[in-house]
Design a protein around this nucleic acid. Structure first.
Lengths: 352, 352
DNA sequence: CTTGACTGCTAAATCCATTTAGCGACGCTC
DNA sequence: GAGCGTCGCTAAATGGATTTAGCAGTCAAG
């Protein structure tokens, strides 16, 4: 097979020294040829060709650490920062964090201090498999968000050897920035009860994050405290609008009535709009709807969607300076900052 | 000032050797203390303390390249891949690229070959200022997207010393994956003319990317070819729904009529919905609306928004394997792949 | 007084790629 | 045949951190 001649991915890696030995030249020659410096270094065309062929055959992949070490301007401090989030999470919060972080970094950059910011992702629930997470050789500091409970357990037991700020979760021994754990559910319940709703449902994804559990729990508690019935639990296959539409349509077709709906994000709420419309009900007169997150398009649904905004702005505004303080090594840091989410009232909760 | 005692960011960086000299111990001791290995290496508590104090005072920042070089399991090939995009760009495409890339990477990972994928961002129009872009010491390969024309010019003149796939632009000497440059505008024009529109407007951001120019140009050309009048040009301050709403409301208030609207993305279209509704018109009967991009919530606007989908799926499906082929060093690569965007017809373009 | 254990530290090798200085061979000139 | 230039390549130093092997010195046990 032609393929196997080139498929070296399961063989051990090679360095320029091995290529050099293989070709019968010095490592210097190999380096020069592979960096396209062969003209100024006066290597013969044939030597260059033989080196290139060997590099391909052996599956040479340059070691960036080696290169960077060598080319590093030694008077410069370099901070490598990362935002770690799960693939499955929505990106707006991450983008917000990134922008805030970049602003801070732009301001802190000097002649002798540089920063590098990247977003890296892990599979939700499999944070522990993320390579290099437990090593001290990758990041100078990290903002970590969108973990699942199993990730949080892993973190609680692990010790990451660099500064970490956790966004949106409370995990022992870490610096955490989170929204007031029960504010979201409580505010949503208040909005619905205020409009006179008596029979409400919650719409959520099947997989519950800590945050979502908190929100649902506090929603139920707030309903009870104010004399309402427990909510009807509608679980969706995913977090896409179509999942919300399907779950609610199914319920409406089979069981009948609700007069209020709390969706754990605005996408599910948008899907619910569709199901409600299809069932011939009106928002908010027949069913009052509240979402979470204030997605960009929430205002442009018909009627505009009321939403308990995840307190993203405020969280980001706390998390970024906190990371910098950790990097600086400030000892007297608050371990936990709690912010309170605002409520954005629109017509989906304004009965006449 | 207390602050200046610690503010070392503008002084040259230090290494463990300098700390060692400063404290009067060996670099080995410094390394052990800073890596929290002092117990097993039997350093005295006082030595550890003095090292820590010196490290803080001198503003020590570990050099990750040095660490990684040392700790690298030498049998492992490591590829560092990045998706480079601008801060100002919408994220859905980037997220899609990332997921596809990660899938490919997960499949290609073996015992001796590892991959690292990150999203990195640059300020739109200032790609040239991105540090390390021209060095060969950061990335093994890159997918680059959401550039502005000035970035494209920079790229056309530059030579990036690693494999690059450009997404959504055509730049000489690079491997590019892009949508058919005039298909989007043409399809949008066809949709509007088909519904009998005679007086149409385009809604776009003030800053025109290459892609947007192409789309607007081909839209105008297609209208002309089919005997329509040139579109009315509505320029918005930004790309947020509220910018679209403002621009269209302004136009409707002052000048009066249109019967068709082409918005260069679904966010602007959503804003336009609002302005149209506020002006007492109906979609699609008074004004037919077409967007671009098929955003998640487009289907849930009222009426559901027709959209010429940026051919993201198809582009991503081409770009990721192309990057891998470049990494493998395949010589016979197509320089350019053009994909054709699909049209998603919904009720915003279905007059009765 | 010898042996062994322990304490607290250091010297030197190592990771990988790049670059500078320079070596040997050859051909040419005078 | 001495001097010079060119060609094609190599040896060795370099970048920063980590780790292994081991060196002095002290103390206690035998």
């Amino acid at each position: 097979m032609l393929r196997s001649a080139r498929d070296v991915s399961s063989k051990p890696a090679v360095t320029i020294y091995e290529i050099a030995k293989h070709v019968g030249v010095s490592p210097a020659a190999v380096s020069s040829a592979l960096a396209n410096r062969h003209v100024e270094r006066r290597l013969s065309a044939d030597t260059v060709r033989r080196i290139r062929v060997a590099a391909r055959e052996l599956g040479y992949v340059p070691n960036m650490a080696g290169r960077r070490l060598r080319s590093h301007r030694s008077a410069t401090r370099q901070f490598d920062l990362a935002i770690l989030t799960s693939f499955e999470a929505p990106l707006p919060l991450v983008a917000q964090v990134l922008r805030a972080l970049q602003r801070a970094v732009d301001a802190a950059t000097t002649e002798h201090t540089r920063y590098d910011v990247a977003i890296e992702m892990f599979h939700a629930g499999r944070l522990r498999e993320k390579p290099g997470l437990l090593n001290a050789d990758r990041y100078h500091g990290v903002i970590l968000t969108n973990t699942l409970p199993v990730d949080d357990e892993f973190l609680a037991d692990a010790r990451l050897p660099y500064p970490v700020v956790i966004l949106g979760r409370r995990i022992p021994r870490y610096c955490c920035v989170l929204e007031s754990p029960d504010a979201v559910g409580r505010r949503a319940a208040e909005l619905l009860l205020e409009q006179g709703c008596r029979k409400v449902a919650v719409l959520h994804g099947r997989q519950l994050t800590y945050t979502t559990s908190d929100r649902l729990g506090s929603f139920t508690r707030a309903l009870r405290e104010r004399g309402g019935a427990d909510p009807i639990d509608l679980s969706c296959d995913g977090l896409h609008p179509r999942d919300g539409a399907a779950a609610l349509a199914d319920y409406l077709a089979k069981h009948g009535e609700i007069d209020g709906l709390f969706a754990v994000n605005d996408s599910l709420a948008a899907g619910a709009y569709d199901a409600i419309r299809a069932a011939g009900r009106k928002i908010p007169d027949d069913i009052v709807v509240v979402g979470i997150g204030d997605y960009e398009l929430a205002e442009y649904l018909d009627p505009p969607l009321s939403t308990v905004a995840g307190a993203n702005d405020a969280m980001v505004a706390e998390a970024v300076p906190m990371l910098f303080r950790l990097l600086r090594g400030d000892a007297d840091l608050p371990r936990e900052v709690v912010v309170v989410p605002p409520v954005i009232r629109r017509r989906s909760t304004e009965r006449r």
